[in-house]
Every structure is written in C-alpha cells, then in structure tokens.
C-alpha cells in the first residue's frame, strides 16, 4: 500500500481536499437516519480493509499537511500542548504505543529498532530519524507526548486515573471542536464534559466513566463523534474563535456545498501499561457536503439527521445559524428512498 500525501492547507487559502478514495473511506458517523447521544463504544480491534478503523492509528493522505498545520498552531500558541508533572510516564507509554503500532501497521512508512532502552525511530513521510533512550526525556528534543504527537494525526489527551475518576492531565490539542486544553487541564471526567447539554441527564457520562475505569490493556475501544465546521479548518479552538468565527457566517446557498464540512472524530481509548493512564486520541476527518453527497446513501441520511436534530444539539454543536441552508441543500439529494443499515456506502 502506498499513500500519496496531499500538499494542502487547513487555513488561509484552504486547499484541503479529499481524493475519491478518501471520500469512500470517510468515517460517516450515522448508522441510521436519526441521531441522539449514546455511549456507542465498540472494540477498536481492526475493521473493514481500507477503512479508518483497520489500523490502530490511521495514517491517510492528509498526514504530512496536517502535521505542518499543527506546527503552525504550536508556534503561535505553545500552550496547546501541556502535561502536568506527574504525566511524564504516561507520555512515554503513549510514545511506545504509537511507535510500535505504526512500525507494525505501516512498515513501509515507519521503522522502530530497539536495543534494550536504546531506540531508533524512522518516520519516512516526515523525514525524521531519531535515536534516543526510552524513558530518558533528555534524549528527545521535547517531552515524549509532544514528540510523538507532532507526528501523529489527531488530538491526544492523556487521562490519569485516581479517586474513581479520570483526570485530563496532559494533552496535545490543536484541532479541537471548540474546547480549551489550557482551561480544562486538570479537570475530571464530569467537569470537562460539563458544557455538553442533555447527556448528563441521560446518564451517558456516568455509564461511560464506569466503562472506561475498567478499560483493559490490549483491548482498546473506539467511538465516533461529529460536528459541522465551515471551511476545512483544524484549529477551531476557542482561543482563536474571534479570528475564525466570522467565517461561520459566510455560508450561502451557493457556497454551502463547498464550504460546509461534516467533521467526524474517531475517538479511541487505550489503557497504558506503566502509568495506568488512558490515552485518548481524537482523530478528525473533514468532508465537504458536495463530496459527501457523491455517496447517495450519505446524502439522504445526513439530510434526515440534520433536519430532525433537536435544536439544543444544533446550538451546542455550533451550526444552528446555518442549519436551514444546510438542510435545504441536502434536501435536493434526498429522494425519500430507504437507506441501508450501517455507516458504509452501498
């Protein structure tokens, strides 16, 4: 398997684009014609060949450009990557997990050679070669979490487990759906989810926490989450909201197909061996509506989901103002035919 890496941008001129193959493998998040919160967790134990669920850490055509965008964000605001002092070991755990997984799953792209604690890492797409001593932070150019997440698509949070709760005590967060690591770092599971409407009353977080506290090593899990984003922008942070906010009001019937994106997060959760922390990668996939409707099933289904979504959720997800335009656009692609079960194209 070879991947052709796109040369593209996620800001400014927004040259981000999906190839026909990337459209087909997009992780469409709706398995039926309506949506409400649920815990919706399943084992992250592979998946359909070619899908983003197949490998432990999916690498796709956006990898190199996405890492360049992360570097830009970090240069402007280094506080997007933080780790409380007790989380260093969890950072090493995560580095090990990513390096071993990528070297096994993508041997043509990544190599890891280990001689005791002397490690040699080769990242061919990014042109990186690093020799270092495992668990010795002085042998890396930065902390282990920052080092590996500058080379791994998606945001990444490390959750400490104590007092029967999970605590967001470290993270690399540069492509977030409008939440601030700098503000939320140190919060427990209920605190950082506090702004989410409805789900608390439904008991979603109590059940999810109970499940995650018992997460076992070697048995990672995954779920999908979604929102809507105007322009293919990764850095939709609250920090920069006053800079990207005006773009949200540029949606018209003429531009909605090309400028409005469905933003899907493939969230995975991994128990880490030494620290007993949980790694929480949040991988972001973006697909414009005009590309999305090239899969007829998805066009029909997204129309029904967004048309019938409770106002509160549209408000929380931040697209209430554009919903009528989006639904009117998608209606053209909904002929009322039934849709097949599951998320994959027919």
């Amino acid at each position: 398997m070879t991947i052709r890496f796109n040369d593209e941008t996620f800001r400014g001129d927004y040259t981000y684009h999906n190839s026909p193959e990337a459209i087909r493998r997009f992780p469409f998040p709706f398995d039926q014609d309506s949506y409400m919160y649920s815990v919706n967790i399943e084992p992250h134990a592979g998946g359909r060949a070619g899908s983003p669920f197949e490998k432990r850490f999916d690498v796709d055509e956006h990898y190199v450009s996405e890492m360049k965008d992360r570097a830009i964000t970090l240069a402007e605001d280094p506080m997007r990557c933080q780790s409380l002092p007790h989380m260093d070991l969890a950072g090493w755990d995560f580095l090990e997990l990513v390096m071993t997984s990528k070297a096994e799953d993508y041997p043509e792209l990544f190599e890891l050679h280990r001689d005791g604690d002397r490690w040699h890492w080769i990242n061919k797409p990014m042109g990186i070669e690093q020799r270092f001593t495992f668990l010795d932070t002085t042998t890396l150019p930065c902390g282990p979490l920052e080092y590996i997440t500058r080379q791994t698509q998606g945001d990444h949070a490390l959750l400490d487990q104590r007092e029967g709760n999970l605590w967001m005590d470290a993270g690399m967060i540069t492509s977030q759906a409008d939440w601030s690591l700098d503000f939320d770092i140190g919060m427990n599971f209920f605190e950082w989810h506090a702004p989410v409407p409805k789900a608390h009353e439904m008991g979603v977080f109590q059940r999810a926490l109970k499940f995650l506290l018992n997460l076992q090593q070697g048995a990672p899990v995954r779920r999908l989450n979604w929102t809507m984003t105007v322009n293919p922008r990764l850095d939709t942070s609250p920090e920069n909201y006053h800079k990207w906010g005006p773009e949200k009001r540029t949606i018209t019937p003429e531009t909605v197909g090309s400028k409005q994106y469905l933003r899907v997060e493939l969230q995975t959760l991994w128990r880490l061996p030494r620290s007993n922390a949980i790694a929480f990668p949040i991988r972001c996939y973006l697909l414009s509506l005009e590309d999305l409707v090239s899969v007829p099933k998805w066009g029909r289904r997204l129309h029904r989901v967004l048309r019938d979504l409770p106002d509160e959720l549209a408000e929380y997800k931040g697209f209430a103002v554009n919903r009528p335009t989006i639904v009117a656009y998608l209606a053209q692609f909904d002929d009322g035919e039934p849709t097949s079960p599951g998320i994959f194209p027919d």
Partner: peptide
Amino acid sequence: FQGVCVDAETP
C-alpha cells in the same frame, strides 16, 4: 470561570 468573545461571528 471562562469568558468567550461574544461577537466573534458578528463583530
């Protein structure tokens, strides 16, 4: 508490 720009989308 957290304060967020109130007119970010409509300066």
